[in-house]
Simulated assay, not measured.
Amino acid sequence: MKRMFEAVVFGGAKLFWDYRHRNTGQYKGYYHWHQCCEMLFVHEGTGHVVVGGDTFPIRRGMLFFFRPYQLHHVYANVSPEQPYTRTIFHFDPQLADDLLGPFARRHGLFTALCQGRYRVQAFDLMGAEEAVERNFDDYDRSRQEGKGEETEEIGMLILRLLDTVIRCDHSGLSRSPGTLERKSTGYVQQAMRWIDGRSRRRHASIEILFIEAVP
């Protein structure tokens, strides 16, 4: 049995930002979940990601979306000659929902992803890598200038990233969102959401244990 809940501590911040984090040593990863949304972009590296019962390759230009309470596993083949470099950011889905409201198509994609009505959670953005890199560079510069917590800056970061997904992932976006995820996975997420809600109401910290099951 393993402890799989990995809390993201915002410390009063709106967005948890980890820019171009680089590993050159062993990185096996583990199954875990967060109480918030996570987006992961790969700058360099190889390996695989397991989420929603599917396995996706880690490679340059890949973007992954993990919704709240969703179990996922990231494994990277890492060595000094083959580093794993990624940008990760976490945020409350309600924040993004509020910011994206005026942008119907982008808001629709985010809502479908966040609610599990859109099966695709891995996007190959290699063809638009320059745009993604520029987006991240711009937001990181805003953080260095002390503006990273402004809702406009966060909104632009997420909006531009979703816009890139829409423009690049033609095969995935041509399908109508549906309830395609395996029911067993959905039940686990519902249970974790219920437990987390009770924990918040009681103002208590709890440790959640699950039996690891590899798809």
Rank of each mutant, 00 (worst) to 15 (best):
F5Y: 11
F5C: 06
A7L: 13
A13Y: 02
K14N: 07
L15I: 15
F16I: 08
W17F: 09
R20Q: 12
R20T: 03
H21N: 05
T24G: 10
T24H: 11
Y27M: 10
K28D: 15
H32T: 11
H32F: 05
Q35R: 01
C36D: 08
C37T: 06
M39N: 01
V42F: 02
V42A: 02
E44W: 01
T46K: 13
T46G: 08
H48A: 08
H48M: 05
V50E: 09
V50W: 01
V51W: 08
G52N: 14
G53Y: 06
D54Q: 11
T55I: 01
T55Y: 08
T55H: 04
T55R: 10
T55D: 03
G61F: 08
G61C: 14
G61K: 10
G61E: 15
G61R: 06
M62N: 13
F64V: 12
F66A: 14
F66Y: 10
F66C: 12
P68S: 07
P68T: 01
Y69S: 14
Q70K: 03
H73F: 14
H73I: 02
Y75E: 10
A76L: 11
N77K: 13
S79G: 08
P80L: 09
E81K: 09
E81L: 06
Q82E: 14
Y84F: 12
R86H: 03
T87K: 02
I88Q: 01
I88D: 04
D92G: 04
P93W: 00
D97S: 15
D97W: 11
D98E: 14
L99R: 00
L99T: 04
L99F: 03
L99G: 02
L100M: 04
L100K: 00
G101L: 09
R105S: 06
R105Y: 03
H107I: 01
G108K: 02
G108R: 02
G108A: 08
A112P: 10
A112F: 12
C114E: 15
Q115I: 06
R117N: 14
R117K: 12
Y118T: 00
R119Y: 10
V120G: 09
Q121D: 13
A122M: 04
A122D: 10
F123L: 13
L125V: 11
E129P: 05
A131N: 04
A131H: 08
E133D: 06
R134P: 00
R134C: 08
